[in-house]
Design a protein around this nucleic acid. Structure first.
Length: 202
DNA sequence: ACGCTGATGAAG
DNA sequence: TTCATCAGCGTT
């Protein structure tokens, strides 16, 4: 144990092929996976426990609903890259680009269960309550120090990546309407772990 | 329930 | 250039 980090050996980043699949399947497949963020030769690590799918130009809630712009360009690129955008004047949200190049879709990472580097997360969040570090999309970006500099980052690289994590039983996954949007409410495209206390809301 | 905060993109 | 909007959070 050095500087609050344990010395667990990290797993191998998931390959690009993992991200090249249906956004709805990817959103569920990401549950239980581990998000790694390199920080000063150590890693901040969290288990993904809540996601949302945003799928193509026909999804009115998707940032690509009005076509390609500078802001959403990463979503139109190849899968397995980070789409990070600034929202509400003060927060960032982390998305994982899904599906083949040219089709704009992504999975929003909405909540994590902190696993390693918790002291560093507390510093970034200015909050010492573990429960309150990563239970929301803006919060987890603050805890993992993710911002516009990481927009477009290759998730098969060294700085930010996702590993196999833990196997999840499908019966432990629940779905609901997506949170914080006013359109596209006809879909249940939010997925989360039942009974995990780090999910952003019940 | 509301204020904070600023990038975004559509309208003019 | 102006303006409403916004995939959130913390405090009331």
């Amino acid at each position: 144990m050095v500087n609050g980090f344990s010395n667990i050996s990290r797993q191998t980043p998931l390959p690009r092929s993992f991200y090249n699949q249906s956004t709805l399947l990817l959103a569920q497949a990401l549950l239980g996976k581990y998000l790694y963020r390199r920080w000063r030769n150590s890693f901040l690590v969290g288990k993904i426990v809540e996601t949302e799918a945003y799928i193509g130009e026909d999804d009115p809630a998707c940032h690509a609903a009005r076509g390609k712009t500078n802001r959403n360009a990463v979503m139109y690129g190849p899968p397995g890259f980070a789409y990070i955008y600034f929202i509400y004047g003060m927060y960032y949200c982390l998305n994982v680009v899904a599906e083949a190049k040219g089709f704009p879709a992504a999975v929003l990472i909405r909540a994590l269960e902190p696993l390693d580097g918790i002291e560093q997360m507390m510093t970034f969040r200015k909050n010492r309550i573990v429960q309150n570090l990563t239970n929301g999309p803006g919060k987890l970006c603050q805890a993992f120090h993710l911002n516009r500099k990481q927009n477009g980052t290759n998730l098969c690289g060294e700085e930010v990546f996702i590993t196999n994590g833990e196997a999840i039983v499908s019966t432990h996954i629940a779905s609901s309407k997506r949170i914080g949007i006013k359109v596209g409410m006809d879909h249940q495209w939010r997925f989360f772990m039942k009974d995990n206390s780090f999910v952003s809301r019940a």
